[in-house]
Design a protein around this nucleic acid. Structure first.
Lengths: 191, 191
DNA sequence: TACGATACGGAGGTATGGTTCCGCTTGTCA
DNA sequence: TGACAAGCGGAACCATACCTCCGTATCGTA
């Protein structure tokens, strides 16, 4: 693909890139998308200019983090798929519970999942497609076992999880994402 | 309550207030919360200063609109409660469907429902409490009829509807709020 | 109609936060 | 080690939007 001579990246640059990503993860997880680029730079111990050298815009930085998150989701799904012994519906439900817990701990991902900005999503498109395909297989297995309602599909998952994420940041009586998720899981059960 | 002599409000001022509210409804419905105060003023055919004379902050204006919306929801619920003939679960489900349709047509309300800002919610607190109480009665009736799962509660509604609202603005395969809502309604059914 | 109180308009103040620019530093290679 | 390229820092720039201020216009009343 790349036709450039690909001079190796300088060691300090690579180190800083990692530091920036780690700092961004921490800062956005704590403060959500409204966290500022200066915060990321300070936390990483670099100047803002350096952040912008590695990521041309804030959305590009967020996109990288979101793509990483989706790769984690995929790893989760692969692990679930590898479990041949558990009851298929329960395996799938536990997979959802683990992913939801990841999201709950990270305000940045939560807001990104609800973001309508193309730029943020662009990088994550391939991983997202893989995740849906893995979900499709998990779902097919549960449906074959007769424990999941037959008209449920992998395409239903994104909007349910997106809706769940939206409520995770809210407080007040009745706001409890674990309860919310269990209701959703019940909706998927065959009856 | 009010101890001021309450000089009657000038006719033009009252007229402008109504114009501003109508304009704000239209502008926020179209563009969501990121619509600007200048847009509202232009649409209403007044200056920004006039908008700020009637509503001290953007949040106060939004709060007024949200409170109005909740009053509509309450009216909906009262109408549903008045229906003694329909199957109680279906009556409740239709009530949810109608409210969801109202929200779907109004990006402003949608974003407001997901907003974590206290200021926006403040005005709507009483109407919100009334709505929950009305929902409680609708739910009790359906549970008494045996068609709604007995462990479902009125406190579950806000987070489900909030989650639903969050997905209404998204596009892409699988994003269809009507489908999402039907899944939620199925989750409430007794089995 | 005249007058005081109330309301209006919209240019500009201010705060916020993403992004750029350029002089300085540091790594890499001969 | 010397020189060049690559990378760095962070002050300044700029765009966006909320909100304020005050001179002008309009309403309601005697």
């Amino acid at each position: 693909m790349s036709t450039t001579p690909e001079r190796p990246i300088r060691a300090d640059a690579r180190r800083n890139r990692e530091r920036i990503l780690a700092a961004a993860r921490a800062v956005f997880a704590r403060s959500g998308l409204e966290a500022q680029m200066d915060d990321v730079a300070d936390t990483a111990g670099v100047g803002v200019g350096t952040v912008y050298r590695h990521f041309p815009t804030k959305d590009a930085l967020l996109g990288e983090l979101v793509a990483n998150r989706f790769e984690e989701f995929c790893a989760e799904a692969e692990a679930a798929l590898a479990d041949e012994d558990g009851e298929p519906f329960d395996v799938f439900a536990d997979h959802l519970r683990r992913n939801a817990a990841l999201v709950a701990a990270d305000a940045g991902t939560r807001h990104a999942l609800m973001s309508e900005s193309e730029a943020v999503w662009a990088h994550a498109v391939p991983a997202r497609a893989v995740l849906i395909e893995l979900n499709r297989r998990l779902i097919a297995r549960a449906q074959a076992a007769g424990t999941m309602r037959p008209d449920f599909g992998a395409d239903d998952i994104p909007q349910l999880m997106c809706g769940l994420s939206a409520t995770m940041g809210m407080t007040g009586p009745g706001f409890d994402w674990r309860r919310h998720l269990e209701l959703l899981i019940d909706a998927m059960r065959s009856r």
